[in-house]
C-alpha cells in the first residue's frame, strides 16, 4: 500500500514540475502528432498496395497501431525516463544513493522519473483503438474487453521486463546510455503483427526481443483474433519475463557490490 503511495508521490511531483514548462506541451504535442501521422502514413502506403497483410485487414492493423501507441506511451511515461536516470546514476556513481534507501531498489529505479507528456500518447492510443473498433463495426463484449485488458497488462509487463534487463547491463558495461535509443529502435518492430515474419525471426521477436509479440497479442484480443493458447502463453511469458528480469537485476546489484567477485 505504501508502495502505491510512493508511486503516487513520484507521479504528483512529476506533474507539478512539468507544469512549469508549459511551452513544452506544444513541442510534445507536435512530437506525438508527427509520430502518429507517420505511423498512419506507413499503414496507408502499405494498404495502397495490398488489401490485407498476413490476413490482417487495414482497420485491424489500425488497432495494432493503437496498441503500439498505448504500450509505448506506458513505457515512456515512467519506465524509459527512469531507466535513463538509472544508467546515468551507475555511470556517475550516484546509484549508491538508491541502494542505501530502505526500499526495493528495482522499484525505485523503475518509477523515479515521470514524463507526463506521454499521457498524450495514451490518449491517442485509446483514440486510435476507438476509431479502429468503430470502423470494424464490431462491439467490444465484456469477454473480449477482459482479454484485451489482461493481454495489454501482460504485454506491458513483457516490454518492461525487457527494458529492465537491457538497462541492467549497465552494471557490467557502465557506458550504456545508447541502449535506450536501441530499445526505442527495437520497439518499432512492434508496429507490425509478429506473424508476418519468417519463423526464425518470429521466434526472435517472441522470445529474444519480445516486443512485437507483446503488442500483437493485445491487438489480436481487441479485434477478436485471439485464441486461448496464445492468451495463456502470453500471461505465462509475462510472468516468466518478470521473474527473469528481477533475477537478472539482483545479479546485477550483486555484481555491482562485488558479491560475485
Amino acid at each position: 500500500m505504501s508502495r502505491l503511495r510512493l508511486v503516487g508521490v513520484f507521479l504528483r511531483l512529476g506533474v507539478l514540475n512539468e507544469l512549469q514548462y508549459r511551452a513544452n506541451f506544444w513541442i510534445q504535442l507536435i512530437r506525438s502528432l508527427v509520430n502518429l501521422a507517420t505511423a498512419l502514413a506507413g499503414l496507408g502506403v502499405v494498404f495502397s498496395q495490398a488489401t490485407t497483410l498476413d490476413g490482417w485487414r487495414q482497420d485491424e492493423l489500425l488497432a495494432l497501431v493503437g496498441v503500439y501507441f498505448l504500450v509505448g506511451a506506458g513505457v515512456n511515461l515512467v519506465f524509459l525516463p527512469s531507466m535513463s536516470q538509472f544508467i546515468g546514476d551507475v555511470r556517475k556513481g550516484t546509484l549508491d544513493y538508491v541502494l542505501t534507501k530502505p526500499e526495493d531498489a528495482q522499484l525505485l529505479v523503475s518509477i523515479r522519473r515521470v514524463d507526463i507528456w506521454r499521457l498524450i500518447d495514451v490518449a491517442m492510443g485509446f483514440g486510435v483503438n476507438g476509431v479502429a473498433l468503430a470502423r470494424l463495426g464490431s462491439d467490444l463484449g465484456p469477454g473480449r474487453a477482459a482479454a484485451f485488458g489482461l493481454t495489454l497488462l501482460a504485454g506491458g509487463a513483457i516490454v518492461y521486463s525487457f527494458l529492465l534487463a537491457l538497462a541492467t547491463t549497465a552494471f557490467w558495461f557502465v557506458r550504456v546510455e545508447n541502449i535506450l535509443v536501441v530499445f526505442q529502435s527495437m520497439y518499432v518492430a512492434g508496429r507490425w503483427p509478429v506473424g508476418i515474419y519468417p519463423p526464425w525471426l518470429r521466434g526472435t521477436l517472441t522470445f529474444v526481443v519480445p516486443i512485437a509479440f507483446a503488442i500483437t497479442v493485445p491487438a489480436s484480443a481487441l479485434v477478436g483474433r485471439l485464441d486461448w493458447p496464445t492468451l495463456v502463453g502470453t500471461v505465462v511469458l509475462a510472468a516468466a519475463m518478470l521473474a527473469f528480469s528481477r533475477w537478472f537485476w539482483s545479479v546485477g546489484v550483486r555484481h555491482y557490490s562485488g558479491a560475485s567477485a
Partner: peptide, 18 residues
C-alpha cells in the same frame, strides 16, 4: 541491506548529488 538497517543510516558524498 535490511530495510531496518538502511532506515537508520545515511550516506553523503561530497562530489555526488542525490
Amino acid at each position: 541491506r535490511d530495510r531496518a538497517y538502511l532506515a537508520q543510516i545515511t550516506l553523503v558524498m561530497g562530489q555526488r548529488n542525490q
